[in-house]
Design a protein around this nucleic acid. Structure first.
Lengths: 213, 213
DNA sequence: TGTACATCAGTGAACGCGCGTTCACTGATGTAC
DNA sequence: TGTACATCAGTGAACGCGCGTTCACTGATGTAC
């Protein structure tokens, strides 16, 4: 059982990989270091040797994933800027919002949204990471992008609107199952399409740009 | 130490009260049955005797609180109906949204939002309660109330809009601290006011009722 | 080129702790005859 | 009115388990002279 996954990539890398998979699947408290080291084919003591404790390992895993998300979002905004420099607000919002539903479409990454909300709380082990590596940089980038296409809007107003959009996205993703019992989502083939269209249009009107009066 | 809080209200009631306070402060996994029984001045075995396990006790506590919230929200909508039968959409949204910020203004109740989001996840011990006792009844009541004042709106559209509003509310409450590093909330005296006004106006435009074209 | 030592990656086993649950028990309060 | 028994609320102590961490150790790989 120890000899599983014998890629010669080193114990540290194997631990990191297994930890990422397990933490993202079951959360910080849902995974024991024994599970991680067993999956990585090493000893329990290895985590303390390489990472100086379970918490540090979790923070390293989470920081990596948060940075991936942030990089992905900034890249999407940049691509829009370069490939569609004349994009209007609707196109920007649509691309931005859709990217979240694509990012969090798998059950594994859906769990990540739960971890993010959990880590916003007062007992969190990594609340600083959520703010500095995710919310702040993305919020600012989107705000900036919106202002370039709607320069007449108030900066603070746009900041609030970005939060409104983020809140909607996260809520629709997190509450998907609970919501399915309200609406006829028996065949939720078009859940993503419908939801993205709704959030885009709702927010477009909500922002109240004069471009779309 | 056992003789603290010797109100003659019975062990069961004392356990329920202490469990509510502790669970709401630290979450399901953040509280041990030893802490609860010690606070209630009884033996560890009392929880299994009265509630048949920690999970059942938590579910009972949570269900009670969720029902309180739901009852409160339905009451607010009903009061509006009776005291301001001619209220327009803006007044309804404003009262409804404000009531959440009042409900979740204390650190203790803020924690409840975290528990709610946590219990929406796949490892939740009470995910059914969130849907059946909170989201579904509130969503339907708000939807109905909005439709009475804007009967020309599409029912499904309104349902989506209610989710958009809920998502915004929850996000602003949950991410308050993270957001304070973006905006100038050094003195967040007016956080609630500003936020409620924003969500109301944003959502009013988002719903797109012709009453406010 | 050989030898002595230091460093490094990783291990095996145990430690101590806190957890939820269980079980045999106690003492008080009904209830039947 | 007394006695025997059943029920009930609650207890004390222990059980077994899984947890994160620690410590002494191993064997391989540098490095200095």
């Amino acid at each position: 059982m120890q000899t599983l996954s014998q890629q010669p990539k080193g114990t540290r890398a194997a631990l990191l990989e297994c930890a990422e998979q397990l933490f993202l699947a079951h959360g910080y408290e849902g995974v024991s270091i024994r599970q991680i080291t067993e999956a990585a084919g090493s000893n329990v003591a290895a985590i303390n040797y390489h990472f100086n404790g379970k918490t540090s390992l979790f923070r390293e895993v989470l920081a990596t994933r948060l940075d991936q998300i942030t990089r992905n979002k900034l890249a999407i905004l940049k691509d829009l800027d370069e490939q569609q420099p004349a994009a209007n607000l609707e196109q920007i919002l649509d691309a931005y919002i859709l990217s979240f539903f694509e990012e969090f479409s798998t059950p594994e990454s859906d769990r990540l949204t739960q971890i993010i909300y959990r880590e916003m709380g007062p007992d969190a082990v990594a609340s600083d990471l959520i703010a500095t590596r995710l919310i702040v940089p993305i919020n600012q980038a989107v705000q900036k992008r919106i202002l370039t296409v709607c320069p007449n809007l108030d900066k603070t107003h746009v900041s609030y609107c970005v939060s409104s959009i983020t809140g909607q996205i996260m809520h629709f993703i997190r509450a998907r199952e609970a919501l399915s019992s309200i609406r006829n989502l028996d065949q939720n083939q078009t859940f993503t399409e419908d939801t993205v269209r709704h959030i885009t249009q709702f927010s477009l009107r909500g922002i109240g740009s004069k471009h779309h009066a």
